[in-house]
Write a protein that binds this DNA or RNA. Structure first.
Length: 187
DNA sequence: TTCGTCAACATGGAAT
DNA sequence: ATTCCATGTTGACGAA
């Protein structure tokens, strides 16, 4: 079955019902029951004309159908989102009119789009942090190895005939060097 | 059948 | 009180 609004099943619009979906609590987040106001998938005019061939043989509860935006609608929404991630009421109204959608649909689309955008951003940051963690782990490993080598070097330098020494950083070449007590006493 | 995507919805918090 | 938004969830749908 092609996924466009013209083949979707319909519901009867209830006069006086608000566009606020939260007025119709339903099992599950998908909010869906007999009291559903308008089929979100359709423009009102289409709903009226198509409603005649809807038998509603499901105890008055039509199966939930999923709207697929047309390519044109998606393109315009994406373009609009690219320009601005949020819409003021006038822009929302205008865009809805242009797309032949309800303002609620445009609003929901933008909410979902922002969420997807944020998710993508978070995933990218996560990847970056993972790589960073990897490089830090590697750096830590190398530094530990270096410390081990330096410790071994220090042990080698120390002998019963030599003075105790300490490891110091040369301020000029920034290399660690072994300094004996005798050397230090000369400074 | 399973899984990913996404429109629609619920809810709670912030702003007005 | 109302509106808007972020976030989490649900369910329809297509693809693998």
């Amino acid at each position: 079955m092609p996924e466009n609004s013209t083949c979707l099943e319909l519901t009867i619009s209830i006069p006086g019902s608000s566009s606020n979906s939260s007025s119709f609590p339903s099992p599950g987040g998908g909010g869906y029951n007999m009291m559903r106001e308008l089929d979100i998938n359709l423009v009102p005019s289409i709903q009226v004309s198509n409603n005649n061939n809807n038998n509603n043989n499901n105890n008055g509860v039509p199966p939930r159908k999923k709207l697929r935006l047309t390519k044109q609608q998606s393109f315009l929404l994406e373009e609009s989102f690219r320009q601005n991630h949020t819409l003021n009421p006038k822009e929302k109204e205008a865009l809805a009119m242009q797309l032949k959608l309800r303002t609620r649909q445009v609003e929901v689309w933008f909410q979902n789009r922002r969420a997807r955008s944020k998710l993508k951003q978070t995933e990218m940051e996560c990847e970056y942090l993972k790589r960073w963690f990897g490089s830090l782990t590697e750096q830590n490993r190398r530094l530990k190895k270096e410390v081990e080598e330096l410790r071994a070097m220090k042990v080698g330098v120390l002998s019963p005939h030599t003075c105790p020494s300490t490891l110091t950083m040369c301020p000029h070449c920034e290399r660690v060097t072994t300094t004996t007590i005798r050397d230090e006493s000369r400074i």
